[in-house]
Each structure stands twice: as structure tokens, then as C-alpha cells.
Design a protein around this nucleic acid. Sequence first.
DNA 1: TATTGTTATACTCTATAACTATA
DNA 2: TATAGTTATAGAGTATAACAATA
Lengths: 152, 152
Amino acid sequence: MSDTAKKKAQNIGPLNDLMTYHLRRAQVSSFNNFTAAMSETQITPGQFGVITLISSNQGLSQSAVARALGVERSTMVAVIDGLEERGLVVRKPSLTDRRSNALELSEKGKQVYEQALELAHQADQKTTSALSAEETIQLVTLLRKLNSAAGI
Amino acid sequence: MSDTAKKKAQNIGPLNDLMTYHLRRAQVSSFNNFTAAMSETQITPGQFGVITLISSNQGLSQSAVARALGVERSTMVAVIDGLEERGLVVRKPSLTDRRSNALELSEKGKQVYEQALELAHQADQKTTSALSAEETIQLVTLLRKLNSAAGI
DNA sequence: TATTGTTATACTCTATAACTATA
DNA sequence: TATAGTTATAGAGTATAACAATA
């Protein structure tokens, strides 16, 4: 760092020993990379989770999406509203339960999802660009182990 | 999983291959462990970052804290307000710059910080309880490498 | 009785813009 | 001109509580 920098970096002290701190920084970094990569599709991280889930489970209900993503079903209403207004998702009546909507991707939704998936992988590569291929696999393996134990 | 469970788990599909997804889940998990461990102190993750920074850099300004934590200085006002109302932080006039406040921990603030630091380590141990000691070191090392490259 | 989708409402965290007092 | 602290305001993202329709 420049000697002439007027604002010196702070000593972050014990934060440097906390996993919580490093996880949060990494998540902010990946979030920023994701948002930047996704700018042409205007898909947010939350929306990406929703359309991925619908793509892999056509016809599932709003409540099922909410449970899988760990949010309240009331929260899903506006998310699905936004995706439906953009013509990416359609609410079809469920054939087996007249209370629920069977969510599907429209043709446009499938196209946007395929594009978004590729951009998400590009963002991932940027996030992990400082790591070797082996280190990247190590990291995702450790995170999977940590997460599956957390049961979320 | 029980065969009688009415709500089957969803297929998360390509999410399982994305670092972004696993980082987010891990961060949510560690956030929850942190919040639960910190309940007796009522210190939020954001407040913990602030008091740690003040503890390691007594007398620094609000703007310096904001820069170190990557938030706007306007955002810091309410955070410092809350810590000052609880009697944990004091705004002293800077001796060298009459525009700025020199932030310090009160005696009570130092006590709460020491307690919070220990609870934060306990939360960390819970977060990484599925990992061996060696794996935990691997994980934090990889995250440090990823983060220092991101320059945040 | 329980669940689905919905609405109304509120809370947290964050940002931008503009102001003042200093530098 | 630029910066520090502050205020007003707004936007995400989230939650809780209640309701009608349906299971």
C-alpha cells in the first residue's frame, strides 16, 4: 500500500481468526460476482434459486419452493409475481390440489435460465480464480460437508 | 427421510455444482450459530465487527470503521447510536480533527466485547463441528486466499 | 384441523443525496 | 475542494398475522 495513502487500513484483530468473518467476506464477494455477471439477464440470486428449482422440478408448488429455499411462502408471492410479469414463469392450476399452483418455466424462461446458469458458472470461476482447480474442489467439498451437517 | 413425509425434498439440480450456493448456505448457517450464541449479549454480527474494530484500534473514526467494514458512513450512524445508547461505545471528540469522533469502548463495552469474542469462537466451533481440526484449518486457509485475492 | 396462496404490515440492512462544519 | 458526521428518504429482503378456499 502507498505510503502516501491518507487512510490507513485498520487492524481487524481477532476477526481474522473467525470462520464466520471469512465466510461472510467470501459470500459478499461471490454475491458481487454473481450480480455483475447476471446484469444482462437481470436475474437476482434469489430468482436464480427459484428458476433452477422449477427447472429441475417442473410443476412444484410455491410452498415447496419456499421450503426448499428456507423462506416463508408469503415471501415467495412477490418473487413469483416478478418472474411471471417478466414472462419467465407461469402459474398453472395444480391437477391434484386446487389450492396450489403448479409452477413451470415458459419457453422464454427456459432460455433465460440456460443463459443464467452459464453466467452463474462464469461468476463462480471469477470467485475462485485465486484457487487452483484442486483447491476449488477442496473448498466446495469442505463446504458441502459443513452444510450437510448443518441440515439446511 | 421418512417414507411417510408428505413433503418430499426437492431436487436442487445444478445448484449443487455452484460455489456461490454452498458459500451462501454456509454463511446462513454460521450467521444462525452466531446469533444463537450471542443471544445473552444481544450483539449482532454487524455490531460485533464494529466493537472488534474499535477494540483493536481505539480512537478511530466512524468513517474509518465504515471503510474497514465496506459500508457507507451514513450507515454507521445508527449502528454507533445503538452501541452508545447501550453504553458500550463512547464518541469522544478527536484531538486532531474537529469534524470526526474518536470511538472508544467503555469499560462495560470492553467487558461485553470480551464475552462476545468468546461466544463468537463457540459459534465458530459449532459451525465447523462436522470438520476435523485439519479440515477446519484447510477451509479457513482457502477462504483467506479467496478473500485476499478479491481485495475486500 | 391443517395447508395454499394471498394481503397487510413491519422490521432490518443498506444505499443515495443533500446539508453543516470543518479540513 | 474534499472529508466527517448527520438527516431524510427509499429500496431490497425478510418475517408475522390473518383471511378465504381447499384438503
